[in-house]
Computed example of a mutant assay.
Amino acid sequence: MKALTFHGPRDIRYSEVPDPQLQDDRAAIIEVTRVSICGSDLHIYHGEGFSEDLGFCVGHEAVGVVVEAGSAVDRHRAGDRVLIPASVGCTRCPECGEGRTSMCRTRSGALEKCYGLGSRLQGSQAQFVAVPDADRNLFTIPDELSDDAAVVLTDAASTAWYGARRARISPCESVTVIGLGPIGQLAAQHALLMGAAEVFGIDPVPERRQMAAAQGVRVVEAEDPVAQVREWTGGLGSHVAVEAVGADVTIETAQRIVRRTGRVSVVGVNQNKKYSFHMERAQVKELEFAIGLCSVQFELPTLIELTRTGRLKPEAVITHCIPLSEGAEAYELMDSRAEGVCKIVLDPRA
């Protein structure tokens, strides 16, 4: 089969790789119909990955059709249309039974809990993908959901919802979203859905600010976003900040931009083991600080229903659909943030 493989910093190739095989009777093989590039895939693209492996298949946001299921798989059969959560759990521990796959007792470390981080669990930017413990790691797609809507639910929309939920956004509160890429755009959408009185958005890319403004976000154009948000909130700062970038400077901005007793929720990926947390400021302001990795399986039932009923429009963040064969060019475009790019979807069948 054909797949996108990683061969070093900024070296993604459209390669011929072996077809995936069932590893045991709990696994399934999926023919991929849509797969997208996640902002966290750019960490791998830049050479900041979780593994030193080369030649592995990348990607962790995909939907498709079951072509083969092991004899112990109860919930899915060949021909079923399914989405593949980015997080990977088992079918045995109590945490995964609750959908909290990031806390899985069976799978140890990030390399076993997400597709496409290394050779241990090949990614889904491919024509086919092997899914372990399929009863836990596949969700049937309702007829009302398009593949484009479903592929955004596999990670980006779920992570955005997780971040907004952990921030405990309440009606009539003000929310600042830092980073208006796909997750930030969706976090803003979720905040409004949760009843936020006003959502402020911060991003250096004009097209992303325009996209956010079109859905009701008050975008910050000033050079000092903290001063601007304080001015808009009577000198107090916003009640909540959702950080969707993962850079040291944006996490710092999130802590500064909220008011006293404010809440900060970080969903951007930060790999800095020496990050300096400003403990005195957090204590004086009585900040609540939440950070973590989304268990997609826990969030999906809510998001599938919100999407099915039209309350949520995850596909709104998609700006480009590109054949998988042009995946290397798609990564370059995603990295450049040119052409107003937000979410790129790849089509393995094109």
Rank of each mutant, 00 (worst) to 15 (best):
H76Q: 04
P20V: 06
R263G: 00
P301H: 09
R311V: 01
V152G: 03
C90V: 07
L42T: 11
S108C: 04
I344Q: 09
F128C: 02
A69V: 12
V131A: 08
V65S: 02
E52S: 14
C38Q: 10
R100G: 00
K2Q: 12
G216R: 04
A222L: 01
Y331R: 06
N137F: 05
S174E: 14
D24H: 08
R120V: 10
H43F: 14
D133R: 01
H239R: 06
F289G: 02
V65I: 15
Q271L: 15
R208T: 03
G268W: 06
D80Y: 08
V152R: 00
V242D: 01
V219P: 06
E243I: 05
A72P: 01
H7W: 14
L54E: 11
L4D: 02
A244E: 06
L306W: 13
E288K: 09
L22W: 08
G49T: 11
G216S: 12
F289W: 10
A254D: 04
Q297C: 05
G292C: 12
T176F: 07
D203W: 11
P85C: 07
R13G: 00
A214R: 15
M194W: 10
T91R: 10
E252P: 00
D248M: 02
V245K: 10
N137K: 03
V240R: 15
G118I: 00
F298G: 00
K2F: 08
S15V: 06
S71V: 15
V35K: 00
A213P: 07
G246S: 08
I169K: 07
V219F: 08
P9I: 01
S238T: 14
V205S: 09
E315V: 02
T5K: 03
L236G: 00
A110R: 03
V151T: 12
V220Y: 01
I44D: 00
A328G: 10
V175D: 01
P225K: 11
Y162G: 02
V88H: 09
V258G: 05
C321P: 00
F289T: 04
Q283F: 15
A254P: 03
E68M: 13
H76E: 03
G55N: 07
A196P: 00
L153W: 05
A69P: 09
G184Y: 09
V63Y: 07
S87W: 03
D41T: 12
A197M: 12
F56V: 11
R263L: 05
G216I: 11
R77K: 15
G234L: 06
Y115W: 11
G216K: 11
A188C: 05
A157V: 14
L287N: 13
I141C: 08
R92K: 14
G79H: 13
S15R: 11
G235Q: 07
H76F: 15
D80I: 14
S124W: 01
K113G: 10
